[in-house]
């Protein structure tokens, strides 16, 4: 492949300036509605830097493996570009078109310069295709990774929002859990509940799992650990809202809830909590 790189490298070096001009034209025409989003000047700088770095990478042996260390500077440039475009709301194809739109002007130059030597032209074209495809795919990859990072961050935020610990009464906390309990989520919940116990000096915490569709062994163990940790801190946990299926699962899984207080409903749990903190609820007149 080293010769392919050489032919391509020569074409690129020779036409660097007018290639850049055509390429920019290609991009501003191709995505007319985006021209405002990236300033012409910025685009020109990016194109210029990209071409310069590609020529540099191709010099001294035509290694076309864009994952190789020789291509680090080019990849860094593309990664930055991809990330910033991703944040500006560009689609992956719009981002990748930065690289792909170079094909048309570049192929035209290759054809013009090497038309006399059919083999050299085919090789240079192949080299250009391999190179630009590799780099184009790389931008898509970075773009996607940037989006994934955003999703992961939002998931984390949701995780924190979805586990509110509320005070039911002075010294009595409740944690209404909703949705599937996976290991990571249970851990976040566990930590925020224990912290709230300290912050509010509450000696009883009710963990209500009415809104939890299923419980697996790991989750059940996490719940048990929470109860044990709370006990070490000097607080007591009551688990309420255990649905019939979950009760069955817990027994089938062989999870020993030990001496953990469990109640069918949050109301029952609150009654127990009030009683344990020396209080009682009394009807003062006939209700409706």
């Amino acid at each position: 492949m080293s010769d392919n790189g050489k032919g391509l490298s020569e074409v690129l070096s020779k036409h660097e300036a007018d290639l850049q001009a055509d390429w920019i034209k290609e991009q501003t025409a191709g995505s007319a509605r985006r021209t405002g989003a990236i300033k012409e000047v910025e685009l020109r700088d990016q194109c210029k830097e990209f071409l310069g770095l590609v020529i540099e990478a191709l010099q001294g042996g035509g290694d076309l493996d864009v994952r190789g260390p020789r291509w680090n500077p080019v990849r860094d440039l593309l990664a930055n570009l991809s990330r910033s475009r991703g944040l500006q709301g560009f689609t992956p194809s719009e981002t990748a078109s930065f690289v792909f739109s170079l094909k048309k002007p570049l192929f035209a130059r290759i054809r013009r310069d090497l038309s006399k030597d059919g083999e050299a032209m085919a090789e240079a074209t192949l080299a250009a295709t391999v190179l630009l495809d590799g780099l184009g795919l790389y931008t898509t990859e970075v773009h996607q990774k940037a989006r994934e990072e955003i999703i992961a961050r939002q998931q984390q935020e949701m995780l924190e929002l979805s586990t509110p610990v509320v005070t039911l009464w002075e010294g009595i906390l409740a944690l209404p859990m909703i949705g599937t309990l996976d290991s990571a989520r249970t851990q976040v919940v566990m930590e925020s509940l224990l912290q709230k116990i300290v912050d509010t000096a509450s000696s009883i915490a009710i963990i209500d799992i009415t809104g939890v569709p299923t419980v697996d062994t790991l989750t059940a163990q996490h719940l048990l650990k929470t109860v044990t940790a709370a006990r070490l801190m000097g607080a007591e946990c009551i688990i309420s809202g255990i649905r019939p299926q979950i009760a069955q699962t817990i027994v089938h899984l062989g999870v020993d809830l030990g001496d953990v207080t469990t109640k069918a409903s949050l109301a029952d749990a609150l009654a127990v909590a009030l009683e344990r903190t020396g209080r009682a609820v009394r009807r003062v007149r006939a209700g409706s």
Binding site: I197, K225, T228, L232, M233
Partner: peptide, 27 residues
């Protein structure tokens, strides 16, 4: 035993100690 911090309690449970036979309180 009073005032065990949450992170300490979580770690202790993971370590496998439950301080059986010792009473605890928040403060």
């Amino acid at each position: 035993v009073v005032g065990m911090r949450p992170a300490v309690a979580i770690t202790l449970v993971e370590l496998g100690l439950s301080l059986a036979g010792v009473r605890t309180a928040l403060d």
